[in-house]
Simulated scan of single mutants.
Amino acid sequence: MNLELLAVFAGASIRLSAPLLLAATGELVSERAGVLNMSVEGMMLTGAFLGATFSWLTGNPALGLLFGMLGVIPLALLQAFLSVTLRANQIVTGIGINILALGGTTLAYREIFGERSSAAIPGLAHWSPPLLGKLPLFGAALFDQVWLLYAGLAVLIATAVVMRHTALGIALHAAGVAPRAVDQSGLPVARIRYGAVMFSGVMAAAAGCFISIGDIHTFTEGMTNGSGYLAIAAIIFGNWKLGRTALACLLFGVATAMQFQLPMFGLHVPTALLVMLPYLLALVAVAGLIGRQTAPPALTQPFKR
């Protein structure tokens, strides 16, 4: 097997898993706090659109990323208000916000870009670790990635530390396990869940920006193409544990990369099968065929004092 092609395949797998990792990190915190943020797909799409639009308008992709992440906050507040304050069905409200985001970004895209849809959009810069990037064969292919990927890994590690070793992490876990006990201890369950949903929204927006201005450098209608749902499936696949969820995101990235890279190895597999492979793996995870899944007991359950 050609090692150069293998290195390209590995690099593509990492790149394609990055938006899933960003979105899943935030979504896991939300679910640990007891809120299933089904609108992560719509938040990713909104972030992708806002990131691309402001990157194009300002010529600065860093500002595009910033506006993309800030612009999703109203959607996150809406999801939190419906789920936590109004105690509405989290799945129904999430899907409704996804539909709203799809329609809104499609309309805005056609109004703003119009015939200029093929215009080049400035993208985020690449970065590689000083030593790892210079390794022969695999160095550039594996480690020369968009800097947002490394920022996402840093956030992942920080999230793991917070969730496992701090009082805030304990409160987040408790809000998804025994919210009444949290309330009796004097901590505000609603505020904890609001904060978790907000974090989920910002991370989903960053994931969307990674796709539009980090990877593709353009925006197309519905370009997230179900990535938000894959991020939720990765959490189920990882049994609500951050490390396992990250590995599940990488697995989905590998499955997605196969549809682009396998022909380079001389392996001719039906394209339709390769396209459906990530979603087939997600279905396996959701169906519980990879072992017993232990969700937070209070997940999707509204809390009333």
Rank of each mutant, 00 (worst) to 15 (best):
V84Y: 01
G42Q: 02
A207K: 03
L22N: 09
A119R: 10
A272P: 11
G291V: 02
A233M: 00
E31H: 09
S117M: 11
K134H: 14
L168R: 13
A207N: 05
G11Y: 11
P129N: 06
E41R: 00
L172F: 01
P302I: 04
V40W: 05
P130Q: 10
A231I: 05
G243P: 08
I91N: 02
M43G: 05
G208F: 00
E31I: 04
L28T: 00
W127C: 02
Y109E: 10
E221Q: 08
A154M: 03
L142F: 09
H217C: 07
A101Q: 04
V146C: 06
L66T: 06
Q79H: 13
R191I: 09
G94W: 04
C209D: 07
Q259I: 09
D215L: 15
A272K: 13
L299V: 08
S117T: 11
G288R: 09
G291T: 15
I192G: 02
R193D: 06
M163G: 00
L22A: 07
G214H: 07
V84P: 03
L107T: 14
L16C: 11
L66C: 00
P296V: 01
T256E: 14
A175L: 06
F81N: 05
R116H: 13
D144H: 13
G68V: 03
Q293H: 03
I192F: 03
I290E: 08
T106F: 04
V177W: 06
H165V: 03
L148Q: 08
A285S: 07
A206D: 02
V92E: 05
M223I: 08
F54N: 03
E4S: 13
A272R: 09
E4W: 12
T85D: 15
M223E: 13
L21H: 03
F219G: 08
